[in-house]
Design a protein around this nucleic acid. Structure first.
Lengths: 208, 208
DNA sequence: TGTCAATTGTCAGAGGCTGTCATTAGCCTC
DNA sequence: GAGGCTAATGACAGCCTCTGACAATTGACA
């Protein structure tokens, strides 16, 4: 944060983001116009669009901050771990260290409430899912490198990530619509779901 | 198709849809405005929005037509099949009988090209993914009923569908970006991917 | 044929987003 | 520290998606 100019820019961006999140979580995403946000920060609407590609980008900014963090966690997993176990541990680690990434911008509570906003706002949920797809591709590449296989010749990296991603998205949904909306609950649900993937894929469920 | 009024409505809707698909597949989704479509059909823009909730709905209309068809295929699977196998057969059956559903509105080629448009247009891809999520919930309910388990007490139906859905979305993506963009290729890729899910989830990939 | 209801067109307007251009304000050099 | 340079902002104007409201049209039906 060198010059005054850069500090001002930083402050404007943070003010815009904080205000946007505040409005999104209190009056909802659709009921918040870009003008509302810009007016509250006392800048022109045009300025908002110079900092964010669109309303969506502001709404998903917090989640985006956790992405790099999670990818790094995957990369840092010890090589002897099996692929799925590495993903599992990386996710849990990501939740456990969420504060380190989020706190500088917003309290974790805002992050959690935004999660619900995303899940309950069709256009945001759609954007979130598309972004998740991109992230899955990135993870598949990390996994392939980790295991020393060619990602274009061997389908297993992308398949493993697709399965993992499917389970994680289900977990997100269940979590955000359930009653216990805490990080602990998310952690527990993740563990539980990953444990039951095996049984769910087994031949028959009736021979339980 | 009783009255003249209803026939006219039907014709207007079909003209709008056909024109929309034509324009989307030739000049792209983003470069096609609703006015373009309405003008080509010689109706007002307002009329377009009376037939379709938005541009998206027109773009995804063909895919939507196959959904009910696929759900029916799942329901029709013999009860002795294991859940995952039932889903697998239903999907393959869906592809094999695509003509029965699509041909009345558009040639299969248009369906295939729209698939590529959807996959390469961010906003459409996002909408498609969100819709896929809703469909997964519907399938999970069918599976739960089939197997006689409580969908809210037993996580296995949703988990199985989440895994299956993850693999199918990967398959869609690989297919739409590959060189062989035929129904046969889709069929083959589906079979191949589902065969390799097991190995991809196994402990280590290096002991191959 | 005349009444009723459904379909459509027209108009106005909100909201997201972009290009353009003038203005402002920080930065840097002499 | 005055002046030139450049980055950031504001102010418009405009396009596109989508919606509400109202009037005009057109099919349905007695």
């Amino acid at each position: 944060m060198e010059t005054l100019r850069e500090r001002k820019k930083q402050r404007t961006r943070e003010a815009l983001l904080r205000t946007a999140l505040e409005l999104f979580t209190t009056q909802g995403y659709d009921d918040t116009t870009v003008d509302d946000i810009a007016d509250a920060v006392d800048v022109s609407q045009r300025t908002f669009f110079r900092y964010f590609a669109g309303k969506e980008e502001a709404a998903l900014a917090l989640q985006e901050m956790t992405v790099a963090h999670f990818l790094e966690a995957v990369r840092a997993r010890p090589p002897h771990e099996a692929p799925m176990e590495a993903l599992r541990q990386a996710v849990l680690e990501g939740w456990d260290t969420l504060h380190d990434v989020i706190d500088a911008v917003a309290p974790v509570e805002v992050f959690l409430r935004m999660y619900q906003v995303v899940e309950s706002t069709p256009v945001l949920l759609a954007a979130h899912l598309r972004r998740s797809m991109e992230i899955e591709e990135a993870i598949a590449r990390i996994l392939a490198e980790r295991e020393g296989v060619d990602i274009d010749a061997d389908p297993r990296p992308r398949l493993a990530v697709a399965v993992f991603g499917g389970v994680m998205r289900l977990t997100e949904r269940q979590w955000s619509t359930g009653e216990d909306f805490s990080l602990d609950a998310m952690r527990a649900l993740t563990v539980s779901h990953l444990e039951q993937v095996g049984p769910a894929l087994s031949e028959s469920w009736r021979t339980r």
